[in-house]
């Protein structure tokens, strides 16, 4: 090691560059959590909110396998409510009316790009008056 200063400087430059995104994010304004449009009148999804927030993708994969591979389409939640296991009929459509105000807001915020909608077709959002009547609650 003939030039330790150069080595240390180089290492420091590397570390600074490699961790740049972290510093950049810390220096900037704190991002605010996305506002989600939730269905009126509903208190809980088919599972507790905490579970849904963290693991909805697991539930969806289980639904998918049940429907596609086992031909079972009905799902009974813990309150005995029976729903059809369907992303574009139950989740979006029957319950959450607008994917862009629910799914996308969180996925954009967290930088997640699910491939669900590459194939599944987003159901049309109900006409504006209906939406206004239902309101948007946080």
């Amino acid at each position: 090691m003939r030039r330790p200063t150069l080595l240390v400087a180089g290492l420091a430059a590397f570390v600074a560059l490699a961790t740049w995104p972290v510093w950049h994010a810390l220096a900037g304004p704190r991002p605010t959590a996305p506002e989600l449009a939730r269905p009126v009148g509903a208190t809980e999804c088919v599972a507790p909110t905490d579970y849904m927030r963290a693991s909805h993708m697991k539930l969806l994969v289980e639904w998918r396998d049940r429907v596609v591979r086992d031909g079972v389409r009905a799902y009974t939640d813990r309150h005995g409510r029976v729903v059809t296991m369907s992303l574009s009929k139950t989740c979006i459509g029957a319950c959450h009316t607008d994917k862009t105000k629910f799914c996308d807001r969180c996925h954009d915020y967290t930088g997640v790009k699910p491939t669900c909608w590459d194939c599944h077709v987003v159901p049309p959002v109900p006409a504006p008056p209906a939406l206004a009547a239902r309101g948007e609650v946080r």
Binding site: A47, Y51, A54, S55, K58, L59, E62, R66, D70, V72, A74, Y75, T76, D77, R78
Partner: peptide
């Protein structure tokens, strides 16, 4: 675990159905 809970629930659903 969450996955086990969901599994059990699904199994129960299937049985009921």
């Amino acid at each position: 675990s969450t996955s086990r809970r969901v599994f059990l629930r699904l199994a129960a659903t299937a049985a009921t159905a």
